[in-house]
Design a protein around this nucleic acid. Structure first.
Length: 286
DNA sequence: CCTTGTGTTCTCCG
DNA sequence: CCGGAGAACACAAG
């Protein structure tokens, strides 16, 4: 599940490699991931280049040289974006040009080929990921639906307090709500709640000022740490070059249901909160 | 059956 | 009965 730290890792990786590379070929293997026609995708991408890569929540925004259009890519649950140099793709030529690194593979849905022979693969096992081409007004409309970036100055303790105060739903539902805070998914929602000592199923409006402060601190500490560790590879996430992230060994509760709490040793409970599998330490989280 | 991000649809309550 | 919040469902494949 690529969440903010994973998508940011991919963004930073790709920014190093694909900016200003002329796109020579656009290959759609599965049109299901296209939110526009292949024809339109080719028309907008061929013989131009990407001038900037930005991120909003879990959404990647590739801005095109025409200064009018943007390629949007969302990886949803199992999507991958992997860059391969030509050298990597043809390396080892000893086996009749067979590609190493296994790309494209059975889950490759879209390929961008650059003038230098490098390729960008959009892979997705479950076909939830998408690629779209939008103009400025559409982009603005899309972005306006997102809540503040948790690592920007817009995301203050005061803002968090305000959005929690009047809500009757669980704190976890709020952390997962992209219109309230952008970029947190199931992994980091559980990690943040554990770090803050707050039960994810607790009603948001009951969280007092000190709890809000701990939640805020947990969010702005854990997300950057996960970015420095290049994200969490639990199932299918890989970075922009196909490598796994290293944050999984730092996870305190996610995926640890039934195991002892790393802080107090109490058995971590698993239950469904906000429709998602959720791990809670009944001792440390109140 | 379970897993999950998000868009859509349904339900409930004031 | 209306509006909006929040919950439930749909999607997909292993």
């Amino acid at each position: 599940m690529p969440e903010l730290p994973e998508v940011e890792t991919i963004r930073r990786d790709l920014e190093q490699y694909i900016l200003n590379l002329r796109i020579k070929k656009v290959t759609a293997i599965s049109s299901k991931v296209l939110r526009t026609s292949l024809k339109n995708l080719q028309k907008k991408l061929l013989n131009t280049h990407i001038t900037a890569i930005t991120r909003r929540g879990k959404l990647l925004i590739f801005s095109l040289h025409d200064e009018k259009h943007h390629l949007l890519i969302h990886l949803k649950m199992t999507g991958q974006l992997i860059y391969r140099t030509k050298k990597f793709l043809i390396a080892g030529g000893h086996s009749l040009g067979q590609r190493i690194g296994g790309l494209p593979d059975a889950y490759t849905r879209l390929i961008l080929t650059f003038q230098n022979g490098a390729e960008l693969f959009l892979n997705d096992m479950r076909l939830f990921a998408y690629a779209h081409i939008v103009d400025h007004p559409t982009l603005e409309k899309t972005l306006s639906a997102f809540g503040p970036e948790p690592l920007s100055s817009d995301f203050t303790k005061n803002y968090l307090e305000i959005i929690l105060k009047k809500r009757q739903t669980s704190i976890k539902a709020i952390l997962l709500n992209q219109t309230l805070i952008a970029g947190i998914g199931n992994i980091y929602a559980d990690e943040v709640c554990f770090a803050a000592g707050i039960r994810p199923d607790r009603k948001a409006s009951t969280i007092k000022k000190d709890g809000v402060a701990r939640l805020h601190e947990a969010i702005i500490t854990i997300l950057p740490l996960a970015i420095t560790k290049r994200g969490t590879t639990f199932n299918s996430y890989v970075d922009g070059t196909g490598k796994k992230g290293n944050f999984v060994s730092h996870l305190q509760v996610y995926g640890h249901g039934g195991k002892p709490c790393p802080r107090c040793g109490t058995t971590l409970q698993k239950k469904k909160v906000a429709g998602r599998g959720t791990v809670i330490c009944p001792q440390c989280q109140k």
